[in-house]
Design a protein around this nucleic acid. Structure first.
Lengths: 260, 260
DNA sequence: TTTTTAATAAGTAAAATTTACGGAATGGTT
DNA sequence: AACCATTCCGTAAATTTTACTTATTAAAAA
């Protein structure tokens, strides 16, 4: 979708291709520089930041829609995606960006705002994705003109009720931290003890004793030490570790113990 | 809604009052005779059982819709309700009951099936409710002609993909058992140790040592012994207990320990 | 080449929690 | 008064969690 005709068609007739009243908001988590981050976009027609999102095609399974939306945005295959909530308590969650403003920008005439499907009440299905920060290559498109990774502690005001969406995603992540393959998806294939340690501290927002933390992961056979180390500036080089996928997944099924 | 005109209007023009493509399915859990049960209804036009459910009014917050639907069905105020998933992976989840069949039963003419909003693709938001079995008085209505409580282990084949909905509700209940006020909502105000013990065993599907279980609940100050007992046939009368609401809710926030 | 620096790595003992387990007491019925 | 099915209770062993300090190392600077 990039020609003017296609855009005008989307705005005018989008509800023929997509389910009206429903959208998907995706909270894409990455981890970089000891910080948990999410990906935000600048949307055309709204002077601020918002979550990546999109609509569900008329005959498209919901989970495929979420996959498609995040995949197109990040370039990643094999996404870890999880639905966490549907937001529908603001019946007046209308598009704050004006369709008119948006279309004028492109010199289109698509009729009155009030009649447009984009202006109707929309419930939004929240998905979060856990991605390897270093493998993402963000694509903006005709509807978005900028992107940026933001620390979860410093999220700016977002479109609609999307700040609530982010909060809920974070709360879910914390709640499920010992039931979801968080480290596996958020860290690169090979990582150091300090990295995974700090990841868990960041998500939980509290300190964890490093010795006990790594002792436990190793004792449970969830990670294994490799014979390589990573060069990190002027200091002692940490060893690299790797997840033991099978043991890790077994442990998650039962829920790893609650504390480290 | 009970006159023929109202029903015909609902079928013909329902999408003026309700959001199309969306519905709510509610899994209403109760506990009776040491069994965890859910409430099922017989829907007109479908020869079998289905979940209580309904539609979302155009300007009605989602959670209010869920409340309204379960409240009307059970007669209960102050419901404990929780959204647990949105089901939208079957784009072909069409109504298996025929609108025609349904309307013929009432001698109405409402046009072709294909054009009817009830026949379009519908995503369903799953809510579960935890209710006190003894306080429920089920109301059937013009769309439903029978109801019954079913053991969760013996759920019959349901409408659409609703068996999956029930499975997911159960899985969520198990996962959140130590984070949700399950006992508080599923048990009557006063209950015995064997009752709450067996409730947790039923939900988790495994045995829990009774001594350790009650020891812990009491030690944590979550329940307190009353000076009353219940007469139960020819045996020793168990004492009644009551939840300590404050302590209970505090404990749930952090997630009570994992085992009893 | 040596020194300096800042980070990584590793083990043990105390405290807390969880698990395992059997026997006495009770209320109503016969 | 005896019987039965059920409630009720306490302690010891095993496991898990917590708390905590020092030696090692890689690279940069001197």
């Amino acid at each position: 979708m990039n020609s003017q005709e296609e855009i005008a068609d989307f705005i005018r007739n989008g509800s023929q291709y997509y389910l009206p009243h429903l959208s998907i908001d995706s909270v894409i988590f990455g981890y970089h520089n000891q910080q948990l981050k999410i990906l935000l976009l600048k949307w055309i027609g709204y002077n601020g930041w918002g979550l990546p999102g999109g609509f569900i095609q008329r005959r498209e399974p919901l989970s495929e829609a979420a996959n498609r939306i995040v995949q197109e945005r990040t370039g990643l295959e094999d996404l870890f995606l999880q639905q966490f909530h549907i937001f529908g308590d603001s019946p007046y969650r209308l598009q704050e960006r004006s369709v008119r403003e948006f279309t004028e920008k492109y010199g289109l005439d698509v009729g009155a705002d009030e009649d447009n499907w984009l202006f109707e009440r929309t419930l939004s299905v929240g998905y979060f994705a856990l991605v390897d920060y270093f493998r993402v290559s963000v694509r903006t498109d005709i509807f978005t003109y900028d992107y940026q990774w933001w620390d979860v502690g410093e999220i700016p005001p977002l479109l609609f009720d999307q700040n609530e969406v982010v909060e809920k995603a974070l709360a879910t992540l914390r709640l499920q931290i010992y039931h979801q393959p968080i480290g596996y998806n958020l860290l690169p294939e090979k990582f150091t003890l300090p990295e995974i340690h700090s990841l868990y501290e960041t998500i939980l927002g509290k300190e964890l004793d490093g010795r006990n933390f790594s002792k436990k992961l190793v004792a449970l056979g969830l990670i294994k030490k490799l014979d390589e180390r990573r060069a990190i500036g002027p200091h002692r080089s940490p060893y690299l570790y790797q997840f033991e996928k099978d043991a890790y997944e077994d442990a998650l099924k039962q829920g790893i113990v609650h504390t480290y």
